[in-house]
């Protein structure tokens, strides 16, 4: 038997090192944002969307399931958190917990239905379910329909951190983002993540090895829904409102767009994608309705010329895992 040493077995260790360096750079840059004069509201909003895109990417990039209804988790968590803060007057941490739990519960219910189908059918079921929910939210009184829930009090996190102060809020949002990001990273590199990748690669083979693949896909779906909800709850503190925009199908489309632009199935791609798209909306706001056209052009260009997304192409060029 040949002796196996590490120098004939490259990649894995190096991949982990590359990812750690990239993570340190990302966290470092985000930590100094308040010192740079970049508009913090913009970065906070982008961070919420980045976490949302990462949660979406967990499902499509590692589970092979394209959800076209992820806005429902963002919006549901947002409404629950907003309602709990404003009407029930709960503390911020409890508000976040309730919103995230709401999205998780929605994930369990819709997951049990959607997971039975694959590919385009899965996408259509998730779209249908999110549209169904959109019309429920349009009609139910607690969401205030077209007006949304406005003027949400930010309060004191754990009774200490004043979330009305932009810098404090920024670091709280950043901590939430980093927590969610690391949890996703861990999930991808866990025993569960290994089975999930195997199912994505070849489901019949995974079944023939004795894996009950539906259960793994359901767990991935619920995790993704929960983290998307977590992003939605955090976003309430940034935007101080919860509205129908967040449950609309075009939001689900935007999540797909962010992930594709950044790089499907890459670890950092969705973060980059979210910043690119949010930056475009922010800085091209002067073009009014034309932003949508510009986004469309970018989307087509991205799919035609760099299909792997920004990070996907970089990782491929340098043969690194990012």
């Amino acid at each position: 038997m040949t002796v196996l040493t590490d120098d004939i077995l490259p990649t894995s260790g190096r991949a982990v090192r590359d990812e750690m360096i990239a993570f340190a750079v990302m966290a470092g840059l985000l930590l100094i944002v308040p010192l740079t004069g970049v508009y913090p509201f913009f970065v906070m909003q982008a961070l919420c969307f980045a976490l949302l895109a990462c949660a979406f990417n967990l499902l499509i990039g590692y589970g092979g399931l394209l959800s076209f209804g992820h806005a429902m988790f963002l919006g549901t968590a947002g409404y629950v958190t907003a309602h709990a803060l404003k009407v029930w007057g709960v503390s911020p941490e409890l508000g976040i917990l309730l919103g995230t739990a709401g999205a998780a519960a929605l994930g369990v219910i819709t997951g049990l239905v959607a997971i039975r189908r694959q590919g385009i059918y899965f996408a259509m079921i998730t779209l249908a379910l999110s549209q169904l929910l959109y019309f429920i939210y349009l009609q139910t009184p607690f969401t205030h329909g077209e007006d949304g829930i406005q003027g949400i009090p930010q309060g004191y996190l754990f009774g200490i951190f004043n979330l009305a102060r932009p810098t404090t809020l920024y670091y709280v949002i950043l901590a939430g983002f980093l927590f969610g990001f690391l949890l996703i990273y861990r999930t991808i590199n866990s025993p569960f993540g290994e089975v999930l990748k195997a199912i994505r690669e070849n489901e019949p083979r995974a079944i023939s090895l004795g894996y009950k693949t539906d259960q793994y896909k359901l767990l991935a779906y619920i995790l993704s829904a929960t983290l998307a909800g977590f992003a939605g709850s955090l976003k309430v503190f940034v935007a101080q409102n919860a509205s129908l925009t967040d449950v609309h199908w075009s939001m689900s489309g935007e999540i797909v767009l962010m992930t594709l632009v950044g790089g499907l199935g890459t670890i950092f791609g969705p973060v980059v994608g979210a910043f690119v798209i949010i930056a475009m909306q922010q800085y091209l706001a002067g073009f009014g309705q034309w932003v949508t056209v510009i986004q469309g052009v970018i989307f087509v260009t991205c799919v035609l010329t760099f299909r792997r997304g920004v990070i996907g192409e970089i990782a491929h060029y340098f043969r690194r895992s990012l």
């Binding site: 949890l183 861990r186 999930t187 590199n189 866990s190 025993p191 569960f192 993540g193 290994e194 089975v195 195997a198 995974a206 090895l209 004795g210 894996y211 259960q215 793994y216 767990l219 995790l223």
Partner: peptide, 21 residues
């Protein structure tokens, strides 16, 4: 390893590092 992993019973553990494998 994916095949060897199943009898371990930790295949749903998304919070653990894959170094347990």
């Amino acid at each position: 390893r994916v095949a060897l992993q199943r009898p371990l019973g930790n295949s749903f553990h998304f919070w653990r590092s894959q170094s347990v494998l």
